[in-house]
Design a protein around this nucleic acid. Structure first.
Lengths: 237, 237
DNA sequence: ATTACTATTTTGCGAGTAG
DNA sequence: TCTACTCGCAAAATAGTAA
């Protein structure tokens, strides 16, 4: 059984998400009325209302309704559904594609990645989920403009999820790991997106059992080539 | 009201199309059982059976069922639904994008385009639908490898449809016109895909009121830059 | 093993209408 | 105008089972 948010939505709800995103509801609240939606999709006003309600309940949009109309904005979870869909579609339309290649350059981060990755509670989960305990630090890659779109594609794939936890000071979110390969390096690598980053973001952090920077003798501004494998299960369950 | 095949399908049926395409059912018949599908999508075997039946009835797949299992293959109409979805998704995820740019080179066709375009029955329709009667000939463009993917994206947009007709000798299909712009040329241009061409195809034929080849002084192998505008209606009906 | 029929339950739609 | 409730009906899902 596959595990995608898409299956929890009807095709109308997916179409509504697409419509909202096309009208920039990913960036800002947009005004809309259920009657407009009803006309656009050729459904009843009631159904349009119910669709919005459901998207709101599923926490993929924020929705403020009033007797004057509605204000809607996509939440990250809503954008993520579109990303997932795009990822699956890309694989469907290019079944021969075996990997996605990205290029970027090394830069010095502010050590935040290191701080998070080093949390002992994460470490245990890394070992069981990734099969290794990563080096206590991340390699920051600024993905080149031309490849940013591919970064969003990767975001649409199903990650390995390192469960978050609560510490005394603050909560630590889930860490989403995308297994990938760094050209020239044998060790397994995983990419993680910096917290709260989203569209237009061009930074990817790499973790690995080894210190990638040392292993590949990388200086800041050196180019790194990354490959994201598209291993798809062939028709099994 | 918008007009997309997607709305005639449930999200499960869309997911099923994606699944089939991912498993290469766009190229060849694949073996599958309704039980496998049921497990994969976490639905009942009966529902999986009915999904396939519906896709078959909608003529988006060919389906041969037997007590030993099923053989399924996507028809062009099925692939086209995925294209439409991809086109809408691209617009949703890149709402700032105003056009798609393609590059290709001129080559000499075998005059087939000219033969079709010159049919008087098409001409009348061209005038009413495109606003002009095209020059009696097409300019053949071989799209460069890097841009072929964009060609499929254009295919997913809703074309201007020039209705086909029956002549004494043979039937003439609908002509699907995609309005676009040739850089350096003021006249309106429309792109049409050669008959029966599909994936991997890299040829686009251009029609215009003027003789593009003469107007731009083009020789074979000259490069042409094409822009496909992504004008999307903003939230109206 | 399959596919796919029938019966039953559940879900979902639109009309009418209240707030 | 809006949103969004209830209600009656229609469509679609599952379970059981036949072929």
């Amino acid at each position: 059984m596959i595990n995608l948010d898409i299956f929890n939505l009807s095709s109308r709800e997916i179409a509504l998400l697409i419509f909202l995103a096309q009208n920039r509801a990913a960036e800002k609240e947009i005004e809309i009325t259920t009657t407009q939606l009803a006309n656009f999709f050729n459904i009843s006003q009631q159904t349009a209302s119910r669709c919005l309600l459901k998207l709101d309940e599923m926490k993929v949009v924020t929705w403020k309704s009033s007797p004057k109309g509605s204000l809607v904005k996509l939440k990250p979870a809503g954008i993520h559904i579109l990303d997932q869909l795009r990822f699956e579609l890309e694989k469907a339309l290019h079944p021969d594609l075996t990997s996605i290649t990205l290029k970027g350059t090394v830069f010095a981060g502010r050590g935040e990645g290191k701080y998070y990755v080093s949390q002992p509670a994460y470490m245990k989960s890394f070992r069981s989920q990734l099969g290794y305990e990563p080096f206590h630090g991340t390699l920051n890659i600024r993905i080149s403009a031309h490849y940013i779109d591919y970064l969003d594609l990767i975001r649409g794939s199903w990650p390995i999820i390192i469960k978050g936890f609560e510490s005394e000071e603050r909560p630590f979110d889930d860490v989403l790991c995308y297994p990938l390969k760094v050209v020239g390096l044998d060790a397994k690598v995983a990419g993680i997106f910096p917290r709260r980053s989203h569209y237009g973001a061009n930074v990817l952090e790499l973790i690995s059992k080894v210190n990638i920077r040392e292993e590949l003798n990388l200086e800041n501004d050196d180019e790194v080539v990354i490959e994201f494998p598209l291993k798809q299960k062939e028709g099994s369950d």
